[in-house]
């Protein structure tokens, strides 16, 4: 059946099994009313079937595109293995919002921390002066706050978000992994620790962002609405907020540039064998269920 059959005659019989069941159900009724009911049921069944077909064709099409892309990639880089998508679209969107905001915040904030560095004046002037760069800083801050809220909701209301959040909680295994990894670096052990979906490095990055966001957004709010702060609090609140904001900014920037970039961009390959095993197990299960239920 195809979409063209959508306008098919409701009197035309459908699949014989269903037709028989229908005839049986409507046997004792008034013939005119029975015909009406049969037409209604046939139309309903057709709609259901069409919807299912439409869904299946869309997912088939997507699967085909993915397969084709995979084939092209394999042709180009035949020495590489299969590629896996580790993070879904929502997760990737969150990360994009966050890194855009953090880059904006760093390039408009660092010149204020180091005003005498020769690049600072250039960067501030790129935005058209300090008045504009502070506006850009607030736009970045707004994006970071949005990211925080989005991620909290994602962790609460998305099934994948809940799963990832639980997987990101530090476990005794992470400590063991860290020790094992250092031993492996030193050459004391030949065995690399087997990481799951998130290694201890990624877990550290994840929780560091929580710490950073709490400090930066918390202290930034005092500085953003400084007139309100002045109205109710002594001056040392602003001084503390200023100091914490500026110091934590430096720590976060250093951690991102040195630690995160090294681990994510510069390292040739970070492996997650346990996650790989998990994916493979899932696939095997799926394949088995398809074989048993063709």
């Amino acid at each position: 059946m195809s979409v063209d059959e959508k306008k098919a005659n409701p009197q035309e019989p459908i699949d014989p099994e269903a037709e028989a069941a229908l005839a049986e159900e409507t046997a004792g009724l008034d013939p005119v009313k029975a015909a009406e009911i049969r037409e209604k049921v046939r139309r309903r069944i057709r709609e259901e079937v069409e919807r299912e077909i439409r869904l299946r064709t869309a997912s088939d099409r997507r699967a085909e595109v993915r397969k084709r892309r995979e084939e092209i990639r394999k042709e180009k880089h035949h020495q590489e293995g299969e590629m896996f998508q580790r993070f879904n679209r929502n997760f990737r969107f969150q990360h994009m919002v966050m890194f855009t905001s953090v880059v904006l915040l760093i390039i408009t904030g660092m010149p204020i921390k180091f005003p005498n560095f020769f690049l600072s004046r250039i960067v501030i002037n790129l935005w058209g002066g300090i008045n504009n760069s502070t506006i850009v800083h607030r736009i970045g801050a707004g994006m970071l706050i949005y990211f925080m809220a989005h991620h909290m909701l994602y962790c609460m209301f998305s099934r994948e978000g809940r799963r990832d959040f639980l997987l990101l909680i530090p476990m005794p295994k992470d400590l063991k992994d860290a020790v094992q990894n250092v031993r492996y670096f030193m050459g004391k052990s030949d065995e690399k620790p087997k990481f799951g979906r998130f290694s201890y490095i990624e877990k550290f990055d994840y929780w560091a962002v929580y710490w950073g966001c709490v400090i930066m957004i918390g202290s930034g709010a005092f500085l953003w609405w400084e007139s309100i702060t002045l109205k109710y609090l002594p001056k040392f609140f602003i001084d503390i907020a200023h100091e914490a904001h500026s110091d934590e900014a430096l720590l976060a920037t250093l951690a991102i540039i040195i630690w995160h970039f090294y681990n994510v961009h510069l390292k040739i390959k970070e492996e997650h064998p346990l996650e790989y095993e998990e994916i493979m197990a899932k696939r095997a299960k799926q394949a088995a269920s398809e074989v048993g239920n063709p």
Binding site: V182, F185, M186, D247, L251, A255, I258, W259, Y262, K267
Partner: peptide, 28 residues
């Protein structure tokens, strides 16, 4: 006063954290 202690806390936090991270990178 208190600002000095906040600044010192962040100073040692930054030095400590970055030391650990950089040593990890160098070992790697």
């Amino acid at each position: 006063g208190i600002v000095y202690y906040v600044a010192s806390f962040f100073k040692y936090l930054t030095i400590g954290t970055m030391l650990v991270l950089i040593v990890h990178i160098l070992l790697d």
